[in-house]
Design a protein around this nucleic acid. Structure first.
Lengths: 92, 92
DNA sequence: AGTATTTTTGACAAATACGTCAAAACAATT
DNA sequence: AATTGTTTTGACGTATTTGTCAAAAATACT
């Protein structure tokens, strides 16, 4: 699985878009988007629908990538992550 | 579902332990533990095994509570959380 | 009621994460 | 090679989060 940053970068490059364009849509500096794509900064949840629009992916796909990447980063080290996720699925 | 803080508080009170004791095991000030139990501060993953030991719960149970609580807090607002979690389960 | 213990609160400092900006590095085009 | 466009880097200020500490508030005990 690709990190969120790698996923965004690939999607953007596949569309031939420069950082400048997507960053403008997100209303952030290109440097931030650059850092997000290299996983030096985190994307915020507010960015998800805008990224979906810009990169012509479904919001669902972008959000799923975002969630996966964040969970792995935040909790990937934990012993019972799988059990925790299963339980969370039952709860929500 | 209880928040992680509420869960810890209940577990601690069920054992009749004062904040002081558990905080000492965690090597933090009582005020921090107090805040964790009221969800003003976040527990770290390093605290999980110590909490398990102190509160005589399995590490698995504590960790699962931790994960659930964190995911709801961090991603509870998202539209496709369920799908994201399912996908994450496939990945890990 | 008075004392001791436990818990909460808030001020402060340290650490972490973030955004802006300008310049440097890199890549593409002519 | 020079110019243009793109991406990366790092210094800087700001916001957010976190831990420490002491005092206040709440609770339990005698």
């Amino acid at each position: 699985m690709k990190s969120f940053g790698e996923y965004i970068r690939k999607s953007r490059e596949d569309k031939g878009l420069p950082l400048r364009k997507v960053a403008a849509a997100l209303d952030i500096d290109t440097s931030i988007l650059s850092k997000i794509e290299r996983n030096e900064r985190r994307a915020t949840t507010e960015m998800i629908p805008i990224l979906a629009e810009s990169l012509e992916k479904s919001e669902k796909e972008i959000e799923m990538q975002f969630i996966q990447s964040a969970i792995i980063t935040d909790f990937g080290e934990l012993k019972y992550l799988k059990d925790g996720l299963k339980e969370t699925l039952k709860t929500i």
